[in-house]
Structure formats: C-alpha cells, structure tokens
Design a binder for these strands. Structure first.
Lengths: 140, 140
DNA sequence: GTGTTTGCAAATGTTTTGCAGTGTC
DNA sequence: GACACTGCAAAACATTTGCAAACAC
C-alpha cells in the first residue's frame, strides 16, 4: 500500500496532487466506510476550511481512479470505502446502524445458483445485507 | 387477494378510504415495483390532480398497514412493491436497469452461515443484488 | 358536524453546478 | 504562466412539514 501512489496516479492522468485529495483518501481509509458528510468531518479535523463540495468532487474523482468505491446503504446514504484492498460485502444493522464487513465468499452458493439458473451475474462488490446484528437481534 | 380490503384495513384503524389511497395501491400493484415518482405518474393517468405529496404520504401509510413495502435500489432510489403476496428479493441489472424478482430461498445458505457465524439475522425481504442480467451480461 | 385527508406552498437536506480566485506543475 | 482545483453561492432535486380548504364518515 504505497502511501504516495495518489500523486502518481494523478500525474499519470495529467491531474494535480492537492492536500485536499490526499486528506479525502486518508479519511476514507481511516473510516473504513463513511458517507460524504462523515468524510468531511474527518477531513475538517485536519483542515477545517475544506468545503463539502470538494469532498464530493474528490470522492467522485477517487472513484474514477479506482482508489475508492461506494455502495448505497439503508436510507440510500452513499457510503464510500477504500478499493483495491480486500473486496467485501456489508452487513448493515437496522437496530444500531453498525456496518460490518464480511467475506464475499459467503455469497458463492447464491451467485452460482443465480448464474446457472438465470444467467444473472451478481456484482458481489456492491452487496449490502440488512438485518440485525448479534447484539440487537438477541433481546436484551 | 380481496381488492376491497383496503377500506376494511383503513376502517379498522379509524382511518378513511379515499380514491387517492386506492389509486396509489393500485399503481404499486400494477408497477410491481416503482419509485414514488413512477407511482405518481401512474396515478396521474387516472387522476392528474393528485399531488406528489399525497403519493409520499399514502405510500408511507400503506407500508404501515402492511400492504406495501420498500427497498432501496441502486442510486438509493426508494422502490415500493406490494406486500402480503410472496416475499422476494430483487435482482437489479446495472446494464438495462431491469428489476427482476427472485425467491428468497436462494439466500438460505448465506443467511444460515451468517447467523451461525456472526449471529447476524438477515432481513431477506429487503435484499437487493446488483449485477448484469442474462441479456446484458452476455456480450451481444 | 367532526376529524381526517388533501393540495399547495414553503422548508429541509443532500448533491450538483457556475464562476472567480488560488495553487500546482 | 497555463490550466486544474478550490471555495463560495446559488441551483437543482427529492422529500417533509404547516396550514387552510375539502371530503369521508
């Protein structure tokens, strides 16, 4: 995980390296997964003048560059997370709102069946499952 | 599937039967699945003066009554569909945008594993899987 | 007639866009 | 010194709320 790869990737496209972009990427990595607002909050801890608009634009760019990806969780809130690392699916708890990550391998039986049966190719990198986590599911 | 059950369900709660509510329910059933805007469009074919606000309020009410449910699809767009019928999961094609329905039973292996391993209880009624349908997945 | 429901308008929250100034290369 | 990037303000969009008029019961 080369920390300076961002500059390199940007330059390869004729784009420019800026502190804001590095901060946004760092924030996503630190959060693991987070909404644009959460990313904004983290970035502002270091540079409080960074505008929310820049967060949106940077996230979009980083996604184009393949450094982050996003999914849509419960209420439709977009959630960004680092890409390139291990792929994973999301387990979203409706009780406490916690987001856990899980190995996409658990979906194997499902994806295989859907492919064989329907020809539908599931994009496992964008799967979110809703439900109740261990703490919320077990009554008190 | 009693078509007049709406009036009954409403009355049981001290609520009132209105044409708007029936139209919204009919529209959801006709669409199979649709966003509030799509529902609005369908309702307006019959009564063009119905306000979008009423669509939102009716959908919320119908959901409370257990007659429809909703999930969040790709871009976070809320999608409503009839409830009480057969439960199902959604297969959303990123290529053509088509939404197919599938038997939640295919998820059994996954839900069992997550329950045993993590204590996470998946709500199968709200599952959406993204990917490519047979037509879009197979090149031309 | 009473109380619920509707439609309109305005408020809200989130994301996008335009533009002039700033900073990177 | 060009041109990309940022910040600010305003626009766009989806959804929610307040309120008076209209309708179901």
């Amino acid at each position: 995980m080369p920390e300076t790869s961002l500059a390199k990737v940007l330059r390869a496209r004729g784009l420019r390296m800026t502190p804001q972009r590095q901060l946004v990427l760092d924030a996503v990595r630190q959060l693991g997964h987070g909404t644009p607002e959460q990313v904004h909050a983290v970035v502002q801890q270091t540079a409080d003048s960074v505008n929310i608009t820049t967060i949106y634009r940077s996230l979009e760019l980083l996604e184009e560059l393949g450094l982050v990806t996003h999914t849509h969780l419960s209420h439709g809130a977009p959630t960004y997370h680092p890409a390139g690392g291990h792929p994973h699916i999301h387990l979203v708890c409706r009780g406490c709102g916690t987001v856990e990550e899980e190995d996409p391998a658990v979906l194997r039986p499902v994806t295989e069946q859907l492919a064989a049966q329907r020809g539908f190719l599931v994009d496992v990198s964008h799967v979110s499952l809703f439900g109740l986590c261990a703490s919320c599911g077990a009554p008190a």
